Amino acid sequence: MTFTLDNRFQDKESSLTQALRQIQQLNSRIQELEQHHQDYVRSQQNLISAIAEICISPIQEVQALRILIYRGEAACQQYLRSLLVKQCKSPPPISTRRSISTAVLMYNLCCCSICSSCSGVALSRSTKII
Rank of each mutant, 00 (worst) to 15 (best):
S82K: 08
C115T: 03
P92E: 11
L47A: 03
L84Y: 01
A75P: 00
I56N: 08
S99D: 07
L20K: 01
P58D: 15
V104D: 12
L5Y: 05
P92Y: 09
Q78I: 02
C88S: 15
C111P: 04
R125K: 08
I69D: 13
S117F: 02
F3C: 06
S82Q: 13
L65K: 10
H37E: 15
E61N: 07
G72Y: 02
Y79I: 06
Y70W: 11
Y70R: 14
S101V: 05
A122G: 02
K89E: 14
R71I: 04
E13V: 03
R81H: 13
D11H: 07
S43F: 04
Q44R: 13
Y107L: 01
S119Q: 09
S90Y: 08
S57T: 15
C111Y: 07
S82M: 10
S15E: 05
L83Y: 02
I54E: 07
N108L: 12
I48H: 07
I59A: 12
Q24M: 01
C88H: 10
L83C: 10
L84A: 06
R21W: 02
S49Q: 14
I100K: 12
A19V: 05
D6F: 06
L33F: 09
R98M: 01
Q78E: 03
V104H: 13
A75C: 10
S15G: 01
M106F: 01
Q87Y: 15
Q10E: 15
Q44P: 00
F3V: 13
Q18L: 10
K12Y: 11
C111I: 13
K128L: 02
S82A: 12
R42F: 10
N46T: 03
R97A: 01
A19T: 04
V62D: 07
V104L: 09
A74V: 14
L84I: 15
H36A: 15
K89Y: 09
Y70N: 14
L68N: 03
I48F: 08
Q44E: 08
T96P: 00
I114T: 13
R125Y: 04
L16F: 11
P58C: 11
V121F: 07
I23F: 03
L47G: 01
Q35N: 09
K89V: 12
T96V: 08
D39P: 00
L123A: 01
C55R: 04
S49G: 14
T102W: 11
K128Y: 00
C115W: 00
E53T: 13
Q22L: 05
S116A: 06
V41N: 07
S113N: 13
N27A: 02
N108Q: 15
P58N: 15
R8N: 12
S95R: 04
L65H: 08
H36R: 15
L65Y: 08
N46A: 04
M106C: 05
D6V: 05
V104N: 13
C88L: 08
Q10F: 10
V104P: 00
S126A: 10
R71N: 07
K128R: 09
L123K: 05
K89G: 09
Q24H: 01
H36K: 15
Q77G: 09
S119H: 13
E34S: 11
A50N: 06
A103R: 14
F3N: 10
V104R: 14
Q18V: 06
S116M: 03
A52E: 15
N108R: 14
F9E: 11
L123V: 03
C76R: 08
I51C: 02
Q24T: 04
V41P: 03
T2P: 06
Q87W: 08
